[in-house]
């Protein structure tokens, strides 16, 4: 192989051969090492999740289990109320995402296409909330919810999260980019503002809506501190809460913990690989999550 490379390259390229590829090779090596370090925990998670409990505690560790134990996943499905956690997580994620999309469309439309007194002041007020860390809201919101008796309910997990100022902001920018002529044309055709919004603006803003939706899905699915505080019965737990409680009970059963973790992580990884351009685009717009 080496001989082939040397003999194939013409002599006058020698300087390039010495200097240029070495640079590039180094770049590839660094990036590959970084990539391996990034992926290693995921591979280790999946590998462990397929091991028998004996093989988990074996040195040196094997990357490929001698027997693939898919059973671990079924053990998790049956041992803990995994199905319940899963349904809760899906329900909360779907509802918060749909809710966020609806409230964002309405608010973004008002902030971009309806002119009214106090609009800019209200928009500034909205944007101001992005400066408030979620921790500030935690205790009073808990008190509010316990006063109206929502603790341990889906309402507590969903309702406070169906508005995202970042989503409104992103969508408003998008709406502002839609030419006025479309609105005038729609008006001449006798369309109301309401119909114009749903029939013209929303379909035109699909990329922005997908981005907003995906960021919300990821955020909701992974959300931890809030569901931890507002739920205390096992039947209301979402997946991440279920995993932490399983891991304190499960003690040393790392193969089962890893199977559990894999089932939380995998859906998001699949969504990410299918639609990553929207996710990366959205994430690069801001440092504020959710």
């Amino acid at each position: 192989m080496i001989k082939w490379i040397i003999t194939k390259k013409p002599l006058f390229n020698r300087i390039n051969l010495q200097k240029f590829p070495l640079d590039k090779l180094l770049i590839y090596i660094i990036l590959t090492v970084g990539g391996i370090v990034t992926l290693l925990p995921f591979l280790w998670m999946i590998s462990t999740s397929l091991k028998s409990s004996n093989e988990v505690h074996m040195l040196p560790p094997k990357w490929i289990p001698s027997k693939i134990m898919l059973e671990n996943y079924f053990v998790i499905l049956n041992r803990v109320p995994f199905k319940k956690y899963f349904i809760n997580s899906v329900l909360v994620t779907v509802c918060t995402t749909v809710g966020t999309l609806i409230t964002s469309i309405l608010a973004a439309f008002a902030f971009s296409k309806v002119k009214f007194w106090g609009r800019d002041m209200l928009f500034t007020l909205y944007l101001g909330t992005m400066m408030i860390p979620g921790e500030v809201l935690l205790i009073p919101n808990f008190v509010t919810l316990s006063k109206i008796g929502w603790i341990n309910s889906y309402k507590a997990l969903i309702i406070p999260w169906i508005v995202s100022v970042f989503a409104i902001f992103l969508l408003r920018q998008y709406f502002l980019g839609i030419p006025k002529e479309l609105y005038i044309a729609a008006k001449i055709d006798g369309s109301t503002d309401w119909n114009y919004m749903w029939n013209i603006m929303v379909p035109l803003s699909k990329p922005a809506l997908i981005t907003i939706g995906l960021l919300k899905v990821i955020y909701s699915w992974n959300s931890f501190l809030w569901p931890l505080i507002v739920t205390n019965s096992p039947t209301m737990r979402t997946l991440p809460i279920g995993l932490t409680s399983f891991s304190s009970e499960g003690g040393t059963e790392y193969h089962l913990m890893m199977a559990f973790a894999t089932m939380i992580v995998l859906p998001m990884i699949l969504i990410y690989f299918m639609l990553q351009k929207y996710i990366i685009e959205g994430a690069s717009r801001t440092g504020i999550k959710g």
Binding site: T38, P41, T48, V56, Y272
Partner: peptide, 27 residues
């Protein structure tokens, strides 16, 4: 780029449990 960004979309809790296992002093 996709690889490096991957941890960002995954549950902090799930991935921290994975790291707990990675950090296990014996195994």
């Amino acid at each position: 780029r996709s690889i490096y960004f991957l941890p960002f979309v995954t549950s902090v809790v799930a991935i921290s449990i994975v790291w707990r296992w990675i950090y296990h002093s014996r195994y």
